[in-house]
Deep mutational scan, measured.
Amino acid sequence: CHSECLGNCSQPDDPTKCVACRNFYLDGRCVETCPPPYYHFQDWRCVNFSFCQDLHHKCKNSRRQGCHQYVIHNNKCIPECPSGYTMNSSNLLCTPCLGPCPKVCHLLEGEKTIDSVTSAQELRGCTVINGSLIINIRGGNNLAAELEANLGLIEEISGYLKIRRSYALVSLSFFRKLRLIRGETLEIGNYSFYALDNQNLRQLWDWSKHNLTITQGKLFFHYNPKLCLSEIHKMEEVSGTKGRQERNDIALKTNGDQASCENELLKFSYIRTSFDKILLRWEPYWPPDFRDLLGFMLFYKEAPYQNVTEFDGQDACGSNSWTVVDIDPPLRSNDPKSQNHPGWLMRGLKPWTQYAIFVKTLVTFSDERRTYGAKSDIIYVQTDATNPSVPLDPISVSNSSSQIILKWKPPSDPNGNITHYLVFWERQAEDSELFELDYCLKGLKLPSRTWSPPFESEDSQKHNQSEYEDSAGECCSCPKTDSQILKELEESSFRKTFEDYLHNVVFVPRKT
Score class of each variant (00 low, 15 high):
Lys103Ile: 09
Cys105Thr: 00
Cys105Trp: 01
His106Lys: 13
Leu107Met: 07
Leu107Ile: 03
Leu107Gly: 09
Leu108Trp: 08
Glu109Phe: 15
Glu111Val: 06
Lys112Leu: 13
Lys112His: 15
Ile114Cys: 05
Asp115Leu: 09
Asp115Gly: 07
Asp115Trp: 02
Ala120Asp: 01
Ala120Ile: 11
Ala120Met: 12
Gln121Cys: 04
Gly125Met: 11
Gly125Ile: 13
Cys126Lys: 01
Cys126Asn: 00
Cys126Arg: 01
Thr127Ile: 08
Thr127Asp: 06
Gly131Pro: 01
Gly131Ala: 08
Gly131Asp: 01
Ser132Lys: 07
Leu133Trp: 00
Ile134Cys: 14
Ile134His: 04
Ile137Phe: 15
Gly139Trp: 05
Gly139Arg: 12
Gly140Leu: 03
Asn141Thr: 05
Asn141His: 06
Asn142Pro: 07
Leu143Ser: 03
Ala144Phe: 15
Ala145Asn: 13
Glu146Thr: 04
Leu147His: 10
Leu147Trp: 15
Leu147Ile: 09
Ala149His: 11
Asn150Leu: 09
Asn150Val: 02
Asn150Ile: 03
Asn150His: 05
Leu153Trp: 09
Ile154Asn: 01
Ile154Gln: 00
Ile154Tyr: 01
Glu155Gly: 07
Glu155Phe: 13
Glu155Leu: 08
Glu155Ser: 04
Glu156His: 15
Ser158Cys: 14
Tyr160Met: 10
Lys162Arg: 14
Ile163His: 00
Arg164Phe: 05
Arg164Val: 08
Arg164Thr: 15
Ser166His: 04
Tyr167Cys: 02
Ala168Thr: 14
Leu169Ala: 14
Leu169Arg: 00
Val170Ser: 04
Ser171Val: 05
Ser171Phe: 14
Leu172Gly: 03
Ser173Gln: 08
Phe174Trp: 12
Phe175Leu: 14
Arg176Asp: 15
Arg176Tyr: 06
Arg176Asn: 03
Leu178Glu: 01
Leu180Cys: 10
Ile181Gly: 00
Glu184Asp: 09
Thr185Lys: 13
Thr185Asn: 09
Thr185Cys: 09
Thr185Arg: 13
Leu186Trp: 04
Glu187Gly: 06
Glu187Ser: 03
Glu187Cys: 05
Tyr191Ile: 11
Tyr191Met: 13
Tyr191Phe: 04
Ser192Lys: 00
Tyr194Arg: 12
Tyr194Leu: 07
Tyr194Pro: 01
Tyr194Ala: 13
Leu196Phe: 07
Leu196Arg: 05
Asn198Met: 07
Asn198Ala: 04
Gln199Lys: 03
Asn200Trp: 14
Leu201His: 00
Arg202Phe: 12
Gln203Ile: 03
Leu204Met: 08
Asp206Gly: 08
Asp206Asn: 06
Trp207Val: 11
Trp207Leu: 07
Lys209Met: 05
Lys209Glu: 08
Thr213Val: 12
Thr213Phe: 09
Thr213Glu: 03
Thr213Asp: 10
Ile214Pro: 00
Ile214Ser: 09
Thr215Asn: 15
Gln216Met: 06
Gln216Ile: 04
Lys218Ala: 05
Lys218Gln: 02
Lys218Thr: 15
Lys218Arg: 13
Leu219Gln: 04
Phe220Arg: 04
Tyr223Ala: 08
Pro225Glu: 04
Lys226Phe: 09
Leu227Gln: 04
Leu227Cys: 06
Leu229Met: 03
Ile232Phe: 11
Lys234Cys: 12
Met235Tyr: 15
Glu237Trp: 15
Thr241Glu: 06
Gly243Met: 11
Arg244Gln: 07
Arg244Ile: 10
Arg244Ser: 08
Glu246Gln: 14
Arg247Ala: 09
Arg247Thr: 07
Asn248Ile: 04
Asp249Leu: 10
Asp249His: 14
Ala251Thr: 13
Leu252Asn: 06
Leu252Trp: 12
Leu252Gln: 03
Leu252Ser: 11
Lys253Cys: 02
Lys253Tyr: 10
Thr254Trp: 13
Thr254Asp: 14
Thr254Lys: 08
Gly256His: 12
Gly256Pro: 05
Asp257Ala: 02
Asp257Met: 05
Asp257Gly: 11
Asp257Lys: 10
Gln258Ile: 09
Ala259Glu: 04
Ala259Ile: 15
Ser260Asp: 14
Cys261Met: 02
Glu262Ser: 11
Glu262Thr: 07
Asn263Met: 06
Asn263Ile: 13
Leu265Gly: 14
Leu265Met: 11
Leu266Lys: 00
Leu266Glu: 00
Lys267Gln: 10
Lys267Ser: 13
Lys267Ile: 14
Ser269Gln: 15
Ser269Ile: 08
Ile271Gln: 15
Thr273Ser: 08
Ser274Asp: 11
Ser274Met: 11
Asp276Val: 01
Lys277Gln: 04
Lys277Thr: 13
Leu279Tyr: 15
Leu279Gln: 04
Arg281Pro: 00
Arg281Ser: 13
Trp282Tyr: 02
Trp282Asn: 02
Glu283Tyr: 04
Tyr285Phe: 12
Trp286Arg: 14
Trp286Ser: 10
Pro287Gln: 03
Pro288Thr: 09
Asp289Phe: 01
Phe290Asp: 14
Phe290Thr: 07
Arg291Trp: 01
Asp292Leu: 06
Leu293Gly: 06
Leu293Ser: 03
Leu293Cys: 04
Leu293Trp: 05
Leu293Thr: 03
Leu294Cys: 08
Gly295Ser: 11
Phe296Asp: 10
Leu298Ile: 07
Phe299Leu: 07
Lys301Arg: 11
Glu302His: 13
Tyr305Phe: 14
Tyr305Asn: 13
Tyr305Met: 08
Asn307Tyr: 04
Gln314Leu: 09
Asp315Thr: 13
Asp315Lys: 01
Ala316Asn: 13
Gly318Lys: 07
Asn320Trp: 13
Trp322Gly: 04
Trp322Cys: 01
Val324Pro: 08
Val324Cys: 02
Val325Thr: 14
Val325Met: 13
Ile327Ser: 06
Pro329Trp: 13
Pro330Gly: 07
Leu331Asn: 11
Arg332Lys: 10
Ser333Gly: 10
Ser333Cys: 07
Asp335Trp: 14
Pro336Ser: 11
Lys337Ser: 08
Ser338Lys: 15
Ser338Trp: 15
Ser338Asn: 06
His341Asn: 13
Pro342Leu: 14
Gly343Val: 14
Trp344Cys: 15
Trp344Leu: 13
Leu345Val: 15
Leu345Trp: 13
Arg347Ile: 09
Leu349Arg: 10
Lys350Ala: 05
Pro351Met: 11
Pro351Phe: 06
Thr353Arg: 05
Tyr355Thr: 00
Ala356Val: 08
Ala356Leu: 01
Ala356Lys: 02
Phe358Leu: 03
Val359Arg: 00
Val359Trp: 00
Thr361His: 06
Thr361Ile: 12
Thr364Leu: 03
Thr364Ala: 01
Phe365Ala: 09
Ser366Arg: 06
Asp367Thr: 08
Asp367Pro: 05
Glu368Val: 15
Arg369Met: 11
Arg370Tyr: 08
Arg370Trp: 07
Thr371Asn: 08
Thr371Val: 12
Tyr372Lys: 06
Tyr372Ser: 02
Gly373Arg: 04
Gly373Cys: 03
Ala374Thr: 02
Ala374Tyr: 05
Val381His: 05
Gln382Leu: 08
Thr386Leu: 04
Pro388Trp: 00
Pro388Leu: 01
Ser389Cys: 15
Ser389Val: 01
Pro391His: 00
Asp393Cys: 15
Asp393Val: 12
Asp393Asn: 04
Asp393Thr: 11
Pro394Met: 04
Val397Ser: 12
Val397Pro: 03
Ser398Arg: 01
Ser398Pro: 05
Ser400Asn: 11
Ser401Val: 13
Ser401His: 06
Gln403Arg: 09
Gln403Leu: 12
Leu406Asn: 07
Lys407Arg: 12
Lys407Ala: 00
Lys407Met: 11
Trp408Met: 01
Lys409Ile: 01
Lys409Leu: 10
Pro410Val: 15
